[in-house]
């Protein structure tokens, strides 16, 4: 009993333990300034990893979100420069999201219609979109956005950073989408067992197309929040997005085999990744460690996850044996 509770809440406990250790190690961690900072960073990661959760749930992966974020936000950044009208800003946001959706849709096409492995298709998209972004920006930086646009990434509302509110909204939207809609059900079946989806009249390619399109849109949205916070857009932004998002999802307990997991775990995953990064900063560990740690954490998470799955199967077998024994008695 205890064990199953531990398994269910292991991620939450890990997060809690991490926070306790960090706050013991450095008093700075629990200051409101630092916590606000963590919240701001976690919110961007959470936005990106909610979309990634859906992709991984459907049995795929998306390595292109950083480039999609970069290309879409660079293309529309001029709309947000100081003095832009609200209409212009709204138009820019819609256009940016549109670019992301189109790129995501292309990912979906390559994967579902041509049959490319997801990591190949999205890796290629990563390179293509990054190349276009770099060519378009030609080494320049677009900066100096108006206050209205900056509100998105750097504003405060009732003492809460706006990005946190946005991330919460995105999370709720995806939570709703995954657990309360027909589409969510379809995502889980396609990820769990594509052939079962087919036999149930659910089109696997269509579902994948939708999922990657949505993820492209989410990536673009993450990019907009990011440049709003930074007050600048440059072509190289977001290179670490895919890995961090995949890391957050993996730690959050969504299985790379598809069909198991959800965005609730991803929140904890995103928080763990952010707190870890923050702790390393506070403790004076070089930021250079972040990439290596993220990679190690991904491997560790999938290995542990595998262990948990194996444990679950073992438990099931024991249960069945007990039932048989009972039936025979």
């Amino acid at each position: 009993m205890l064990r199953s509770y531990l398994a269910r809440f292991s991620r939450g406990i890990a997060l809690l333990a991490l926070c306790v250790i960090v706050s013991l190690a450095t008093p700075v961690f629990l200051t409101s300034d630092n916590l606000l900072n963590v919240a701001r960073q976690a919110s961007l990661l959470l936005i990106l990893s909610t979309g990634m959760t859906v992709v991984i749930l459907v049995g795929g992966t998306d390595l292109s979100i950083g480039s999609i974020a970069a290309l879409s936000s660079c293309l529309v950044a001029p709309f947000f420069l100081r003095g832009a009208s609200t209409l212009q800003i709204v138009l820019g946001i819609i256009l940016g999201l549109g670019v992301g959706a189109v790129l995501g849709f292309l990912n979906g096409l390559m994967i579902s219609k041509i049959g490319l492995p997801p990591f190949v298709a999205t890796y290629g998209m990563n390179q293509i979109a990054r190349g276009i972004a770099l060519a378009y920006m030609a080494g320049n930086i677009t900066y100096g956005f108006g206050p209205t646009f900056r509100y998105l990434g750097a504003g405060m509302l009732y003492g809460i950073p706006v990005p946190v509110i946005i991330a919460a909204a995105v999370f709720l939207l995806f939570y709703f989408l995954l657990s309360k809609t027909v589409f969510g059900r379809q995502v889980y079946v396609v990820g769990a067992r594509p052939s079962v989806a087919t036999f149930s009249g659910i089109s696997v390619p269509e579902t994948m197309l939708k999922v990657y399109t949505i993820n492209g849109l989410v990536a673009a949205f993450g990019g907009l929040v990011f440049i709003s916070r930074l007050n600048a857009a440059e072509a190289g932004l977001g290179e670490t997005f895919p890995l961090q998002a995949i890391g957050a999802v993996a730690i959050g307990g969504t299985s790379f085999r598809g069909g198991i997991g959800g965005v609730t775990g991803t929140i904890i995953g995103a928080l763990i990744v952010t707190v870890l990064t923050n702790a390393m900063n506070l403790l004076g560990v070089s930021t250079l460690w972040q990439t290596a740690v993220t990679g190690a954490v991904i491997i560790l998470a999938v290995v542990l996850d595998q262990g948990l799955v194996a444990q679950g199967v073992g438990a099931a077998l024991v249960m069945r044996r007990n039932r048989r024994v009972r039936a025979e008695a």
């Binding site: 993996a250 790379f256 460690w289 740690v293 991904i298 491997i299």
Partner: peptide, 30 residues
Amino acid sequence: VIAGAGIAPFVVTLGMMSVGEGLALVISGG
């Protein structure tokens, strides 16, 4: 990890990609 834990190579090698790159960053001081 791939042979022992039976995990899809792309996930493991993706992780190792960033471990390698990350350690290179650390060792070289960026």
